Amino acid sequence: MKKVGVLGGGQLGRMMIQSAMNLNIQVKTLDPDPNAPCKATAHEFIVGSLNDYDTVIDFAKDVDVLTIEIENVNTEALIDLQNKGVTVYPKPEHIQMIQDKRVQKQFYIDNNIPTSPFVLIDSIDQLNNHTDMLPAVMKVGKGGYDGRGVQVMKSTDDFSKGFEAPSLLEKMVDIDKEIAIIAARNANGEISIFPAVEVVYHESNLVDYLLSPATITTEVEEKAKEIATSLVAKMEFVGLLAIEFFVDKEGQVIVNEIAPRTHNSGHQTIEGNITSQFDQHIRSILNLPLGNTSRRSASAMVNVLGEKGYTGEAIYEGLDEVLKLPGVYIHLYEKFMTKPERKMGHITIIAPSKDELFDKVDAVKKHFKVIA
């Protein structure tokens, strides 16, 4: 029986375990939180730091494959493990590249992957040298996630809000749509691409909901799939790669960011596609045949976030109303404490038509709330 080690014990790891169990694969997880979502489902659950070299080395001593569900891990340990013969997917060098948005963006330029114009910034003082980039978005190189470490710069008045850390300044794109694609590649070089989804964001830059199919032209979808295929092939990536795109008002498709793991933008695949992103991740890292990614039906995903103004033991309002809706599936992450905008779960929705899908999205957003 294969044993997969997962660095990170959050909700992505929890859903990965559910897929692994169907193939009799044991999963061992490492997380600093003793009450992380994986605790109740992992075959082995180890409490420890994902960034401590010795902890990661010791954790991997008895696994067949080591993977991640979060990028913030000790890559030096992963490199040494790989050099000692441990199978690590995604590869440590890919995790390192994606950990630093500055390096990530330079990779796109070097490999002819379309992306927005940018300059590298080492301190706030340097912003004054790049007023020609305005309006722009400043992103901290390392450590930003879920909208954190991002600052919109509409004018020089916003420069004081910048980051005193190595960052990049991106020319703002005139966005028509934001879409995402999940790509998978196994060690044999087999590549599989999921259909594009449309991503709708909260004002706080967290995902509000996803729609599949995305309301884009066939040409835009094919261009995004072509870029996704080129990206995983040029990287020789193994595992699951989530790719976030901007589609501008002229129909150009531009890579924004990538993540080397299962991703919020693929949650609707659990019920909406023949193969889920979590099944596909397990297949890819174990070098199994990749699954069919076709849609079963139109689908959506609504993020379940803690309501503003509530911190404490979670209470779920509207559970009965939502469970009465056909084609609606609740996925909660076993997080007992809520706080404003904490990811507490997601709800997937399938429907025979987009109109019915929108109606159900509206009903879910209206009724389902996480308070304390």
Results as ranks from 00 to 15, higher is better:
residue 2 K to L: 11
residue 3 K to T: 13
residue 4 V to T: 03
residue 7 L to V: 00
residue 9 G to Y: 01
residue 14 R to K: 10
residue 23 L to E: 13
residue 26 Q to P: 01
residue 27 V to C: 00
residue 33 D to E: 03
residue 33 D to L: 02
residue 36 A to R: 00
residue 37 P to F: 02
residue 48 G to A: 02
residue 48 G to S: 01
residue 54 D to I: 00
residue 55 T to V: 03
residue 58 D to A: 10
residue 58 D to T: 11
residue 58 D to F: 03
residue 64 D to P: 00
residue 69 E to R: 01
residue 77 A to F: 00
residue 81 L to M: 05
residue 84 K to T: 07
residue 84 K to N: 14
residue 94 H to L: 07
residue 94 H to T: 09
residue 96 Q to H: 01
residue 97 M to P: 07
residue 101 K to L: 08
residue 101 K to N: 06
residue 110 D to S: 13
residue 111 N to L: 09
residue 115 T to Q: 09
residue 117 P to G: 00
residue 118 F to M: 10
residue 120 L to I: 15
residue 121 I to E: 06
residue 123 S to E: 13
residue 124 I to Q: 09
residue 127 L to W: 04
residue 127 L to I: 03
residue 129 N to T: 06
residue 133 M to H: 03
residue 138 M to C: 03
residue 138 M to D: 03
residue 140 V to C: 09
residue 145 Y to R: 01
residue 146 D to S: 04
residue 149 G to P: 00
residue 153 M to P: 07
residue 154 K to N: 15
residue 155 S to C: 05
residue 159 F to E: 07
residue 160 S to Q: 13
residue 162 G to K: 09
residue 163 F to V: 11
residue 165 A to Q: 15
residue 166 P to W: 08
residue 172 M to N: 06
residue 172 M to R: 15
residue 173 V to E: 05
residue 173 V to N: 03
residue 174 D to H: 12
residue 182 I to W: 07
residue 182 I to F: 12
residue 184 A to R: 04
residue 184 A to V: 14
residue 187 A to P: 07
residue 191 I to F: 03
residue 193 I to T: 12
residue 197 V to I: 13
residue 201 Y to G: 02
residue 208 D to E: 14
residue 208 D to F: 10
residue 209 Y to S: 08
residue 210 L to I: 06
residue 211 L to P: 03
residue 214 A to P: 05
residue 218 T to I: 14
residue 218 T to L: 14
residue 222 E to W: 10
residue 225 K to T: 10
residue 229 T to D: 11
residue 230 S to P: 01
residue 236 E to Y: 06
residue 241 L to I: 05
residue 241 L to N: 06
residue 245 F to I: 04
residue 246 F to V: 00
residue 252 Q to Y: 14
residue 253 V to D: 04
residue 258 I to L: 14
residue 262 T to P: 13
residue 262 T to V: 15
residue 262 T to G: 07
residue 266 G to D: 01
residue 267 H to L: 09
residue 270 I to F: 03
residue 271 E to A: 01
residue 271 E to I: 03
residue 272 G to S: 10
residue 273 N to C: 15
residue 277 Q to I: 09
residue 278 F to L: 08
residue 281 H to I: 06
residue 281 H to G: 10
residue 283 R to P: 04
residue 283 R to T: 04
residue 286 L to N: 05
residue 296 R to G: 06
residue 300 A to I: 04
residue 306 G to N: 11
residue 307 E to T: 01
residue 310 Y to P: 06
residue 310 Y to G: 04
residue 316 Y to R: 13
residue 320 D to E: 15
residue 323 L to F: 13
residue 324 K to D: 15
residue 325 L to V: 14
residue 331 H to V: 09
residue 332 L to R: 12
residue 333 Y to A: 11
residue 342 R to D: 02
residue 346 H to Y: 02
residue 347 I to M: 08
residue 348 T to Q: 07
residue 350 I to C: 08
residue 351 A to L: 01
residue 354 K to P: 00
residue 354 K to E: 12
residue 354 K to N: 12
residue 356 E to K: 14
residue 358 F to I: 14
residue 358 F to Y: 14
residue 358 F to D: 12
residue 358 F to A: 10
residue 359 D to R: 13
residue 360 K to A: 05
residue 365 K to S: 05
residue 369 K to T: 06
residue 370 V to F: 07
residue 371 I to L: 06
residue 371 I to M: 03
